[in-house]
Simulated assay, not measured.
Amino acid sequence: MANKLVIGNWKMNGSRQSNTEFLSKFLAPLDQLENVDVAVCPPAIYLEQLAGLVVQSPIHLGAQNLSESEQGAFTGEISGSMLRDFGCHYVLVGHSERRSLNGETNALVAAKFKAALNAGLTPVLCVGETLDQRHDGETLNVVNDQLQAVLDAVGVQELGKGVIAYEPVWAIGTGETATPQQAQEVHQHIRRYIAEISPEVARTTRILYGGSVKGDNAAELFSQPDIDGGLVGGASLDAHSFLSICRAGQSRQL
């Protein structure tokens, strides 16, 4: 069975010094963990530094974004092949902050998912609803639309080569967290939605929860039957906090 997966999204945080200090505290105890996969997604400018620091460690390197294009006159963009060149394994696509702050549409996110696969990366597809959408009872419809755009672009087998992260937008960086039961309800729905096309892909696809995951709630979240790990924001910037979340992930294999 697959391990739990815990990914730290550092967002626009870090420095060469703080990155080194974080890993000096994190790497040694991480070696003692079993049955959990760990990745960190630093700002792109620090990928080369971290690639050197995590070599021969169990940490996978990830990026926070990529271009839907492979190359060309796209000033400021970074392609999937460039990320692979720096040792990336994962890349986030469709994070709620990219959708809300940068206007990324479902179609654009699907194109980025496809570009990541073409570059040999594992895309982490972020889906989730806003507070207004939840209050309006639109949570599952919003998630369906976000999933369907990728299914239409690449098909279910290719979707299964990625990871899905359910992140209720109202619980990101707010201190609010969906209850384990609320999170499980959406995770179960996602798995059933995929199972309507391919039960096998639904069974093997890892679905993470993202939304103020912390050391004191990770174990209960990860104990839910359809929650396969976490996409961690602020808590991943502190070595002790992130390690406690990773420890929660090793308690049960999928």
Rank of each mutant, 00 (worst) to 15 (best):
F86R: 10
A107Y: 10
G160T: 07
G128V: 09
V40W: 05
L221D: 03
N65C: 05
V38I: 14
T130A: 09
Q64W: 01
N3T: 12
G103D: 08
S24G: 00
V186T: 12
F113W: 05
Y209F: 14
W10N: 09
L33E: 15
C246M: 02
N3W: 13
P225S: 03
A149K: 01
L159W: 09
L125P: 04
V163K: 08
E167W: 00
L108N: 00
K114I: 04
Q157G: 08
Y166L: 12
L208C: 08
S24E: 14
L243W: 12
K25S: 14
G120P: 13
Q133G: 10
H240T: 14
T205G: 10
F86W: 14
F26Y: 10
V142R: 00
F22H: 00
A178R: 04
R98W: 04
L23R: 05
Q157V: 13
K214A: 01
R134A: 13
A218F: 03
T205L: 15
G120H: 11
Y209L: 10
A171K: 02
A115D: 05
S81M: 03
C246P: 04
R84L: 13
L23M: 10
A2R: 15
I194N: 07
G249Q: 12
K114H: 14
I45C: 13
L30R: 05
V6A: 03
A248V: 12
E48G: 09
Q17K: 13
P43K: 04
P123A: 11
N65D: 15
Q64L: 00
Q224T: 01
T205Q: 13
V142I: 13
E70N: 04
E68S: 12
G173R: 07
G215C: 04
I45M: 13
A2E: 13
L243M: 14
